[in-house]
Design a binder for these strands. Sequence first.
DNA 1: GTCTATAAACTGATAGAC
DNA 2: GTCTATCAGTTTATAGAC
Lengths: 224, 224
Amino acid sequence: MRIGEATEIPAADSAVSQKSARARSRAVMEQRILAAAAAVFSEAGFDAATTAAIAERAGLPKANIHYYFRTKELLYQKVLADVLDIWIEQMDLFTTEADPAVALRLYIQAKVALARSYPIESRVFANEMLHGAPYLGRFLGSKLKARVDAIATVFARWAAQGKIAADVDAHHLMFTLWAATQTYADFSVQVGAVLGVDALSEKDYERAAEQLTILVLRGCGLDN
Amino acid sequence: MRIGEATEIPAADSAVSQKSARARSRAVMEQRILAAAAAVFSEAGFDAATTAAIAERAGLPKANIHYYFRTKELLYQKVLADVLDIWIEQMDLFTTEADPAVALRLYIQAKVALARSYPIESRVFANEMLHGAPYLGRFLGSKLKARVDAIATVFARWAAQGKIAADVDAHHLMFTLWAATQTYADFSVQVGAVLGVDALSEKDYERAAEQLTILVLRGCGLDN
DNA sequence: GTCTATAAACTGATAGAC
DNA sequence: GTCTATCAGTTTATAGAC
């Protein structure tokens, strides 16, 4: 297929219309492969995931995977980058002007919602951490650390203003919030088994968020 | 070497002395292999772990691994069983007679101590959960569920006696406690990076336990 | 019991026809 | 761009000398 053939549709969105039919086709295939790759990586981890499994899930011959992503490593890095995009944009809630109780409540709800809506991405991230973060190591010590340090500053101001208990360490609080929310994605098998259900329902996630909110707000000395 | 040769030492402990020299030698080799296997499984997960890597870490030829454990799967199951032994014996603290604050404080300290002393075992367990618990699935829905259900009964009694906040769900509290403590083993790379340290020190683990205790006790409506 | 050698299957990646 | 065939390397597991 050449550029500007019959399938070329004038799009309303200019950013899209600037792409040729070929480029659009490539983007579609890449998305399809990335989705399949994320699923396989989440189930197996990087080392155990096979390009054959990714190809099969994408409904493509194995060689096509290597045509769009030269190596398995490049494909994994792209998956990880997409996963990070989802994860990092949650911490803006913690500003000095915000109400601590409201910020914490919204953050917990957002994180539990992420665990429910993006379990695959959550597990890819968990696998990466569990295996020593060979690809995300840099990000953790730079960008993520900076974000949490900034949040700690906000918590210190809140504490100085008497808005929150002074003995709460923001760093460790974040570790607990991350762990407690991600467990509903990463360890959903365990949670489901202990609750006695096959799969977690919307009610289960709501209750999870509600319970964690109760614990954390009261734990931070905030009236519920 | 035949049974009853010069290396046969009369042992004070009868249980040990009943074992032949051959059996003891076998037990030693099995332990050596199991330790190496746990390390490799914790770093790679079951699928990505190779018997060659286990052999290398144990300082043995690869064939010897298969002599003591016929298949990689049997070796993994034995490692998992040993891991479970470490993990399940922590919940006896929660009895109706116990003081809720004391029980929770001790449980958190014990769990954080486990995360520090047995990070390998913790990661093997985490890997198994993350990949859908193909080998521990049964255990989760039977033995573990029964334990947590029993704890929930204790919490209900405590709540009825006014000893603990009535709106705390014991099941979700346990999920949070497990996740928050295990994160110091499973995600120690992330924790260390955000704290700005290469490796977590004893002080870091102490602070982790202390902070989680503050949050949970106050969160459960208990005077600290 | 230990170890070298090797079988049989699978892995990431590529060549080359279409 | 797509796909079959295939390479070189690795994997689990075993055979068989010692």
